[in-house]
């Protein structure tokens, strides 16, 4: 059986699943709106955590936050579950499917069969929505895919219990009660923006928000001396990959957030957000520019035209711009 579920591709797995699931329950919001309401734009640089021997960079909030926050702000009750027992995790999934409920699951991509080999790292926070089962084959709606995909029960079980950093442990989530009243979008949007300003500006430790970008700029300047040419190039490649990794909508969610601000301007009937959107677009362009230069650096190691020094300058400039923009947005709201 297969649930009548409209699959729409999205830029990002989590916001994509959230939006597709909401549409199934009759709440039509766009993916950028989900990102904005979920306060999903972020930056973090954690030099003390290592993945494959490299520090961790991220342009988004923690996995699971967008979904939870969007549902909370729209007043929709959800359920979440993790499992210790593999068999139980599949039984619980089947039970929900039989009731006609689409189920979001968190998976690791290393054994995700329809991903190209080059994308399969031990990354354990990918989201997809299971929408049907026929014999032993599950139909899944993965937002980063243009069409639906199929996974055998064994393959699905394996990715749901992927191991490594942050194992998903069969995590699944679904809508408990569909919304009774039409959600108040305006309030949700303003809340989301406020929360995002706070996350970008106010976290008092130096690894997160704009402070994190400044810290990365400061460290990156000396990467080559401190880590050696090879490791420095690898770290730089890692930043570019996280910035443009499948699922950011371009420039580490900056373009998607600009799209959100544009939509917010229309819904709130406030043209000020159009200016903020333009600003966010040009910040996105700066990130893309940074990625281009960084790629030049790690590809041609003797390129004197862009040095770590200059890349660091660029990042500082981006941090200044983001700090300025979020401060202005906050001023405008309060």
């Amino acid at each position: 059986m297969k649930i009548d579920f409209k699959h729409n591709p999205g830029a990002h797995c989590e916001s994509g699943v959230t939006v597709n699931m909401l549409r199934f329950y009759g709440v039509a919001i766009s993916e950028p709106l989900a990102l904005g309401i979920g306060a999903g734009l972020f930056f973090s640089y954690m030099p003390f955590i290592h993945l494959h021997g490299m520090p961790v960079f991220s342009f988004r909030s923690l996995p699971g936050h967008i979904f939870s926050r969007v549902m909370k702000h729209l007043g929709i009750k959800v359920n979440k579950r993790r499992f210790l027992n593999r068999g139980a995790s599949m039984q619980a999934l089947d039970k929900l499917l039989e009731k006609g409920i689409p189920v979001g699951v968190v998976v690791g991509v290393f054994y995700l069969t329809y991903f190209p080999k080059e994308y399969r790292f031990h990354f354990n926070a990918h989201n997809l929505c299971v929408i049907g089962k026929e014999d032993d084959v599950y139909t899944v709606s993965d937002p980063v895919s243009l069409t639906l995909n199929e996974l055998s029960a064994a393959d699905l079980l394996r990715v749901r219990f992927a191991k490594g950093t942050y194992p998903p442990m069969g995590k699944m989530y679904w809508v408990k009660h569909p919304p009774a009243v039409t959600p108040n979008l305006k309030k949700a949007i303003l809340n989301g923006i406020k929360h995002n300003c706070k996350r970008m500006l106010d976290i008092p430790i130096p690894y997160f928000g704009v402070k994190g970008i400044y810290l990365l700029a400061k460290h990156l300047r000396r990467w080559e001396q401190r880590l050696g040419e090879r490791k420095a190039a690898l770290c730089l490649a890692q930043v570019v990959r996280m910035l443009e990794e499948i699922g950011t909508g371009g420039a580490g969610f900056r373009y998607m957030y600009a799209a959100f601000l544009q939509e917010a301007a229309a819904i709130l009937n406030n043209p000020a957000y159009l200016r903020f959107s333009d600003d966010m677009t040009s910040i996105g362009d700066l990130w893309r520019d940074f990625a281009c230069e960084a790629a030049r650096r790690f590809k041609n190691r003797n390129d004197q035209l862009c040095t770590y020094e200059q890349l660091s300058e660029k990042l500082t400039q981006i941090a200044d711009r983001e700090k300025n923009l979020f401060s202005r947005i906050r001023q405008h709201i309060s």
């Binding site: 080999k117 980063v144 499948i246 371009g250 998607m256």
Partner: peptide, 15 residues
């Protein structure tokens, strides 16, 4: 890139 031969795509938001 590597997505070319799959049904996966990078979705961008553009003007």
């Amino acid at each position: 890139g590597y997505l070319k031969d799959t049904n996966l795509r990078d979705i961008y938001y553009a003007l």
